[in-house]
Simulated assay, not measured.
Amino acid sequence: MIVLENVSKTFSGKKGDIEAVRNANIEVKTGEIHGVIGYSGAGKSTLIRCVNLLENPTSGRVIIGGEDLTSLSEQNLREKRKKIGMIFQGFNLLKTATVYDNIAIPLRLIGIQKKEVDDRVKKYLEIVGLADKVNAYPSQLSGGQKQRVAIARALAQEPELLLSDEATSALDPETTDSILELLLKINKELGITILLITHEMNVIQKICDYVYVMEQGSIIEQGTAIELFSNPQYPTTKKFLNTIAQRKLSSSLIQQLKLSGNVLRLTFLGESTGQPLLALVSQKFNVKPNILTANIIELKNGIVGNISIHLLGEQQDIAAALSYLEEHGVNVEELEG
């Protein structure tokens, strides 16, 4: 569905050139939800705007449905964009227009007939759960409802691809969850491919199949959600994960608990999450695990369990215990901090 090949975007200014995106390579298959995560200034928004050529890449190719958008004429690009919906952090609703007209006006502008416009507005308001707000104005809606109108507006053009530019970052946690559930519903029931950008790890956790981590314009790490949550490689990825699962013990806590040596994090995947492996190693290898922190992260396509422990015992027994855990699918690493 989406292929970015060595896409770069450079902005020129009085103080010199700024490389916002550097040699980005992305492939999103039809029907999947992919997420791009990074801190402010990482290049996420520029990257996603390159997908529908709201920003023209300085170099590289953007291929949607087998067509290279960078090679299309303006007219053909406009036609291709009709199959690419986009939702934004700021909603971008017309304040003086009703909910109905906010969805209908873009359809009228591209020449959709009156009855078809009416059918689509009602259909997609029903899908986003706002059928009763058809005559309301944006000022009468909550933030979550405004975003639902924006999503209905994007869906009304019946796209094959939906781009989401920080669509939940202005919303409270409960409303964010409801919007994420709506995106999952849209993906599953309408079969729409979704590419989103975010700086919130819980967004990635709840709906993404695949993840790209951006830093200073480059994609520094990528993989399935389970791969990144269970075995992150780069400090930036680890920092993001620490926002939802403690991956680092403070030096003051280590000193307070008088911990030294064999402070470990155990990551459990799949079947290993349901087995009493810590109890078994305690029985088999004469070691004593002192549990410091524990959590289970539910992802879209699986579960990742994390346990931080201080493992006590003779070094040869500890080595045997850790080998046993790794043989049973547990990832073992020295805890940061």
Rank of each mutant, 00 (worst) to 15 (best):
N286F: 11
I112K: 11
I151Q: 06
L299T: 05
I244R: 05
A279L: 13
L195Q: 10
T176H: 07
Q75T: 15
P276K: 07
V62N: 01
E215H: 12
R108P: 02
V51E: 00
V211Q: 06
T243V: 08
E221S: 01
S71E: 14
L171R: 10
Y39R: 12
V28K: 05
T237R: 06
S260I: 12
K14T: 12
R153I: 06
A150M: 07
I220T: 05
A321K: 08
Q147V: 08
K239C: 03
L161E: 10
K258I: 01
S230R: 00
G13V: 10
T273K: 06
S40A: 02
E32D: 13
V3D: 13
G223P: 00
D101V: 03
F11N: 06
K239P: 06
G305T: 09
N301P: 02
H34D: 03
T175G: 10
S169M: 06
A152L: 07
I309K: 05
G313Y: 07
L77K: 00
N286Q: 12
I84R: 03
R81A: 02
Y124N: 10
K80W: 05
P232A: 07
I151H: 05
N187R: 08
H34A: 14
K15H: 13
I204N: 07
I296V: 15
I307P: 05
V62G: 03
A279V: 13
I291P: 05
T176A: 11
N295T: 15
N92K: 13
L311D: 11
Q275S: 05
L54G: 02
T58M: 06
E67I: 11
N92R: 14
K239V: 09
L161D: 10
V36Y: 03
C50R: 00
I26L: 09
L54K: 00
G31Q: 07
N23G: 10
K82Q: 15
L183W: 02
S40W: 00
N290E: 13
G313S: 11
R108E: 14
S169H: 05
S250T: 14
A42D: 05
I26V: 14
D68F: 04
E298Y: 13
V51K: 02
L190K: 03
T243W: 04
E55T: 11
T58F: 04
G43V: 12
T58D: 06
S282H: 00
A225G: 02
M1L: 09
A97V: 06
S282R: 11
E116T: 13
A170I: 08
K188W: 04
K44P: 01
I291V: 15
Y234L: 11
A245I: 14
L183R: 04
G144K: 01
S169T: 11
E298P: 03
